[in-house]
Design a protein around this nucleic acid. Structure first.
Lengths: 241, 241
DNA sequence: AAGTGGTCTAGACCACAAA
DNA sequence: TTGTGGTCTAGACCACTTG
């Protein structure tokens, strides 16, 4: 069974063993896991090696570390689903409808306080605001409000975005390491209603997404879909590696 | 400004500076970043410190490391996100509000054609329909319409569900292998509006989830949240463990 | 064969929070 | 005051890959 341990780094092995004890419930939430110096003794290695494993576990959110107190198992995460959010063009074409994109407005400015909040940025800098619409079969399918952090993506200032939507333009050239989605429902205000050819007050599905790379804000986008006509479908199978 | 850098660890500073060079385009995809020993000289630190920064950048996907060759800026990747859907009690408690659960109706019957569609089942059999409400701080937080396939979960017939919500009851005893989520927005009909203490027509966020185990339908649930008050937040980091 | 990154050591000093 | 984690050093050996 476990005789085949060809090559696994020690800190990875320590990480795996602790992670398994946590996920199996052997070390429940709130449990204080052994101190670094205890693990050092248990594994017969230096403190750096143990520290590397524990630091990664803390970053993954499985444990919480407190000076002077030790490291504690955090509350377990519940269901996790893999939600693939496709490019809107692909969404539309998957419905068998012709796709069209239209830029409604483009504005470059120094980040306001509100912009910084949208981006999740601490410091200000130049930003690019884009409003655009995506059509499916001649009818409005999605209204997009996009904010791009020009400090992180300066080339965006040179792009007109009249022929390519900001989404595919960004994914084609900027990597990201973290994304946060917020999904909610709202009633269409007048601007949105007009953009989507709806009556004011109609239910809309709102998807907001923030993207970072290595803790640096890249972009914030708010996508508004007519509520009844759009379903966001996610299918997943729990995997473990 | 940037004068306020009271305490930032050196490896974090190295990480930030390299990340910024990459994101700004100064170091484009394919660019070979300086070797560890060069950065060691540049920052006047030990190799471990440089290595910590570079390892994290590699884990974040910003660079790729190859022995003997060096480290290279990677090309951007495509998108896929992990959506965490919490147990409702945990959702509520995370808001710091007292949680309460209430069963509104319970009905056992032979599956109708509509039931089979909801479950994604081909054959009929006994099902259990549960309508319930979840409260946060005394106010309706979520209206749940649940259908359980009794052929797959016969013990559910013995459970009253007056003291425990179907969600946690199921997750505590029935494993699942596949789930499908559909998220949409809708206007509250009269029943929903009354259940959630809203005006008819108010925007609501709807989450529908089907669960199977080894291709056997387990349950279907429709969760309706007041749209403005609820946000479904998902945070994703493409790491590897 | 040579040079890179991957890993690890056996120390060290410091910041921080609990006792 | 004490003990924890956070960080860093100045080495070291090894695996891998390219020249």
């Amino acid at each position: 069974m476990d005789l085949e341990a060809p090559t696994q780094s020690l800190h990875q092995r320590i990480l795996n063993e602790i992670r398994d004890r946590i996920l199996s419930g052997e070390w429940p939430p709130g449990f204080r896991i052994p101190f670094e110096h205890e693990l050092t003794a248990e594994y017969g290695c230096s403190r750096m090696t143990v520290n590397k494993a524990l630091s990664q576990l803390a970053k993954a959110g499985l444990i919480e570390r407190r000076r002077r107190s030790g490291s504690f198992v955090t509350r377990p995460r519940s269901q996790a689903a893999v939600l693939e959010i496709h490019d809107i063009r692909i969404e539309v074409e998957a419905l068998g409808l012709p796709y069209r994109y239209e830029l409604a407005s483009r504005q470059q400015r120094k980040a306001t306080r509100e912009d910084r909040e949208r981006l999740g940025a601490s410091s200000g800098g130049p930003v690019l605001q884009l409003d655009c619409r995506h059509f499916a079969g001649g009818r409005p399918f999605c209204f997009e409000e996009r904010l791009i952090n020009l400090a992180a993506v300066p080339e965006a200032a040179e792009e007109t975005f009249t022929d390519i939507a900001p989404g595919p333009w960004l994914t084609g050239r900027v990597p990201w390491s973290t994304a946060e989605h917020a999904i909610s429902a709202t009633e269409a205000d007048e601007v949105t209603a007009q953009a989507l050819d709806l009556e004011a007050g109609a239910a809309c599905l709102v998807i907001e997404r923030r993207t970072w790379n290595a803790e640096r804000p890249i972009t914030h986008v708010k996508l508004v879909y007519p509520g009844e006509s759009h379903r966001l479908v996610a299918r997943f199978t729990p995997t473990e590696g």
